[in-house]
């Protein structure tokens, strides 16, 4: 249990996928304009992350690894994630149209979100068990949500600030993102002390 908590919180805070591992930067910059789109995107990311980890882990452990084709993991994982997102979209469209509407364009966009592939591969590299992989994926998704929400707040302040012409738009956004990222380094070592 304690181990699970450590994995969960270090994925959220210490090894935040956006701010520490720099995965999923594109949606991070793209949809953090306002809280509503940030909400839609991060919900979709959490769902796909957990599901993708749930599928990629067994396929690697029971199929690729015993046959000695571990090196195929990247291409196989990409296949699985893309197909998974496609299937989820079709099912949602039919059975829960309101959720499908809410997630909107973000669901297909996630297919190319490197955070999903990143989590799937990291699960294998870290040698996590199946349950640990799921917890890690959940933590990664929550961390993504946290980063997106915090940054949506920062950006709403940026909109009202008087920014020099040269820095307007993406440049100041990147500067702000790096500052938020630095602030997350304050969590280093915190989790192990808390639970360890």
């Amino acid at each position: 249990m304690k181990e699970m908590l450590i994995i969960l919180f270090s994925a959220i805070l210490v090894n935040n996928f956006v701010l520490s591992r720099f995965l999923g930067i594109c949606p991070f910059l793209g949809v953090s304009n306002n809280l509503k789109t940030a909400m839609g995107m991060s919900t979709a990311v959490i769902a796909v992350l957990v599901l993708a980890s749930g599928f990629t882990w067994p396929i690697y452990t029971f199929l690729l690894e015993p046959l000695g084709f571990g090196y195929l993991q990247t291409i196989v994982f990409i296949l699985i994630i893309a197909a998974l997102v496609q299937i989820i979209e079709t099912i949602l469209k039919k059975s829960i149209p309101s959720l499908y509407q809410a997630l909107g364009i973000y669901l297909p966009l996630i297919t190319t979100n490197c955070a999903i592939l990143g989590v799937a591969i990291l699960n294998i590299d870290e040698g996590y068990t199946f349950l640990q992989s799921l917890v890690n994926a959940l933590g990664a998704g929550l961390g993504f949500m946290l980063a997106l929400f915090l940054f949506a707040g920062v950006r709403s302040r940026l909109d009202k600030a008087d920014i020099p012409q040269t820095l307007k738009g993406l440049p100041i956004t990147l500067v702000a993102a790096s500052l938020v990222s630095i602030s997350f380094f304050g969590f280093k070592g915190l989790i192990e002390r808390l639970f360890g």
Binding site: L67, L79, I87, I91
Partner: peptide, 25 residues
């Protein structure tokens, strides 16, 4: 063999997608 594994997985996933698309049309 790797081509067969990759292609096989892709084929299976493709079939699953087609089935779900038919089912949840």
């Amino acid at each position: 063999i790797p081509i067969a594994i990759g292609g096989g997985i892709a084929l299976i996933l493709g079939v699953v997608i087609v089935i779900t698309a038919k089912f949840f049309d």
